[in-house]
Design a protein around this nucleic acid. Structure first.
Length: 138
RNA sequence: CGGGCAAGCCAGCCUAUCGCCUUUUUUGGUAACAGAAAGGGAGGAAAGUCCGGGCAACACAGAGCACCGUACUUCCUAACGGGAAGUCCUCCGGCUUGCCGGGGGGAGCCAGUGCAACAGAGAGUAUACCGCCUGGUGGCUUUGCUGCCGGGUAAGGGUGAAAGGGUGAGGUAAGAGCUCACCGGCCCUGGUGUGAAUCAGGGCGCAUGGUAAACCUUACGGGUUGAAAGGUCAAAUAGGUUCUGCAUAUAAGGGUUGCUCGCCCGCGCGGAAUGGGUAGACCGAUAGAUCCUUUUGGUGACAAAAGGGCCAGAUAAAUGAUAGGCCAUCUAUGGGAUGAAAUCCCGACAGAGGUACAGAACCCGGCUUAUUCGCUUGCUUUUUUU
RNA sequence: GGACCCGUAGCAUAACUGAAUAGUGCACCAGAUUACGGCUCUGGAGGUUGCAGGUUUGAAUCCUGCCGGGUUCA
């Protein structure tokens, strides 16, 4: 409520990043996931949140060098920032989202953006929650 | 002009739109926080973690041993295994043949102990296999050859990575530093130099081969741990810790770096203070062995002085994305210089092209490794034309 | 961020107090045995000892620097 613009404008502030250790553990324990070839997504409904919280990860397993990992994270973050308004068109439930990049290739921004748009469309932003028991335990 | 080597420098810029982190000021708000304005925002290696420091906590009466590290000299430095200047040895290249340039190396195996497979007669107070020389005594085809029993020898052969200085002469039965000359080595004295060293003189026949990235000796240095150090904030209590009173009485046991000596504390009961773990926030944590310019001293590393500047502080971890332009650079075609070739220069249009290595994690000084295009300096060098 | 360890045939492991052909088992190939296959027996091949320098007469081993993999620390 303090940050009205976070829903609609093209920002990506610190509060929109998923940082809490507990929430991350919860997400990876109970969240469901799907894939859009290079990207994998894990998500979990979060009734207590007032906006979506996103975590972006590029595993060290696929990319040894910090420069490459940072580059890919920046591209994914940018693509999310530009295309996130579509997430708010649905209902009022917000999610914890983890986006992971599982490929050895370094794709250009335009490719990553395409995949991310596809991915965001598949996210169930509506009120129909696929995993009730998970949200209860939290 | 081009090629090669070495050292050093640089690590694109501008505009628009949308964003990220942060500092200061300001507006709203009790506050958390939100908005606005103005600034700042990765590297030469931020990397590897190979060294050295700062900083912090703990420990510390002291001595010895052990352990670890370093090793030509002098200097620089907060310190270093780093750097500078020099010195000696060695390798490569060049020529003017003793100089220049570059690479590598350096305490001590005449303090001791150990080690050297195979081969070889012998491998370290050495050795007699083939040889060389010779004494005695036999035999025979008697200036000689040869069997047996002895002796001398380290010249020659052969083995090996290495055979106990080298060359020449004398000497000898044959030989041998046995003697001598020169070269090499070691020791002493003196001169020069802060010193490593070097020069000169004298002595020693050489007793003293290699290996210390073998044990070791000598000299110097090192307390341990490591920002996940450590500190602050709010709540509750046990153990623990610290201080203190009483009691016990020098013993068990514990601490003191791994050990020894030495030193210190002591079963138990009571009182006071502190507050374990978990989750989190803040400090530590970004003004410093700082950066830039100039001057002075020094061969140089570097130091001093003056003036000016503030230059990332994130923490699931900030610099990005898109579009356009400028400008390096490259490619092909074209033009010019020249008698021609090689080579060089110019460049409208077109195409390629933002690049390599790589992302701060407490902070510095080094080392090592990775690295696109280009530029500067030094050394060296081929071909073609005139 | 700090500390530590390990790299040997396709796989697992010896030789790590230097010594000249780097050993062993499984797997692989060939032969024997069998009607054929397995088991068994005999023989063989396969190694840049992670890479690059150095010390030594001689390096898997000792020293230095890289590369790769792993363990651990509130």
């Amino acid at each position: 409520m303090m940050d009205h613009n976070a829903h609609t404008s093209l920002t990506f502030t610190r509060d929109e990043r998923l940082k809490s250790k507990k929430k991350i553990e919860e997400l990876f324990k109970y969240g469901s996931f799907f894939r859009v070839p290079p990207l994998q997504v894990k998500y979990l409904a979060c009734p207590s949140c007032s906006y979506h919280q996103v975590l972006i990860a590029v595993p060290k397993k696929f990319h040894k060098k910090a420069v490459v990992r940072n580059l890919l994270k920046r591209r994914i973050r940018e693509a999310y920032r530009i295309n996130k308004p579509s997430l708010f068109e649905g209902g009022q439930t917000y999610h914890l989202i983890a986006i992971m990049y599982l490929s050895k290739e370094i794709l250009p921004f335009s490719e990553i953006e395409k995949k991310l748009i596809k991915l965001l469309k598949r996210l169930p932003v509506d009120s129909s929650l696929p995993n009730h028991e998970a949200s209860h335990e939290s």
